[in-house]
Design a binder for these strands. Structure first.
Lengths: 146, 146
DNA sequence: ATAAATGCAAACCCTTTGCGCTCAT
DNA sequence: ATGAGCGCAAAGGGTTTGCATTTAT
């Protein structure tokens, strides 16, 4: 109902000729605004805040749709549920503070290059990779497990 | 019953003073023999082949026990279930052929070093990482998705 | 008008767990 | 003997899905 400007993702969906329901519009907006890596429940929470007539099933279906369309990227940071971010223009990997759960993005050209080399050396073509660094604050050495 | 030689893992368990049931002995043996990355169901299948009186619940409990004791390493290669390998003496990462599911181990000192540097540059200490390369055979460029 | 999308609740998959029985120590 | 471990089946958490209803086109 609100005629707010089209979010980036909504624009992409429209360009792809997707049927744009109010639910999709809202989820697209939520994801476009997100600067973190929300899980489905969180996306649902934020979406429901904009319009309560939206079910978690729809969020699941839409995340899958968006993922398969390359609109969002799914991550599994080891906490059992999937986390999403809008497909980034520039590739990056993640550094996860295991104490706070905070996620920092980084990119390292050298690592990217070496990965390619490794794949090729084994007779393969690199089609994807996952690199996550699990870390603890330097100033908090001992108090935690693992 | 069979007085076969102690598997490596069984030895480690014994050294740690664990109560060694026949089930644990068998699971330890299965894992010690495995040269792949079996999931729980597969570990159960192989264990049950040695002795059918072993439940999947016990396998789950034992995998968790072994993992927490540092005896095995758990991996999540993106297919939804956990996969295990005996904790390797020398650290390595994985290269996964997305077509066949084949897993190849590799190690690259340069990447390891850069990871440390990245963590430190962000004010963190690296406590773990996950690096997986998803690949396709060089000679099979187009027939598959993703 | 009509096929696609939604909401609801049931089902699924992997994993964990409560409980009474069994077994290693 | 006795507490840890086991099997069973039920429960849990995240995710998917069948079906009747709603909605974008």
């Amino acid at each position: 109902m609100a005629t707010r400007p089209m979010s980036h993702i909504e624009q992409v969906c429209a360009d792809k000729g997707m049927k744009m329901t109010e639910q999709r519009r809202i989820i697209a907006h939520v994801l476009s605004e997100a600067h973190d890596h929300p899980d489905v429940e969180e996306v649902h929470r934020r979406s429901a805040a904009e319009d309560p007539r939206i079910s978690i099933a729809t969020v699941y279906r839409t995340m899958r749709l968006f993922e398969e369309a390359g609109i969002v990227k799914r991550h599994e940071f080891g906490d059992g549920r999937a986390r999403y971010e809008e497909t980034p223009a520039t590739h990056h990997d993640h550094l996860i503070d295991v104490r706070s759960g905070k996620v920092i993005e980084f990119h390292n050209e050298e690592i990217e290059r070496i990965q390619q080399e490794i794949a090729q050396a084994h007779g393969y073509k690199l089609v994807g990779h996952r690199l996550e660094l699990y870390v603890l604050p330097l100033d908090a050495g001992k108090a935690t497990e693992e």
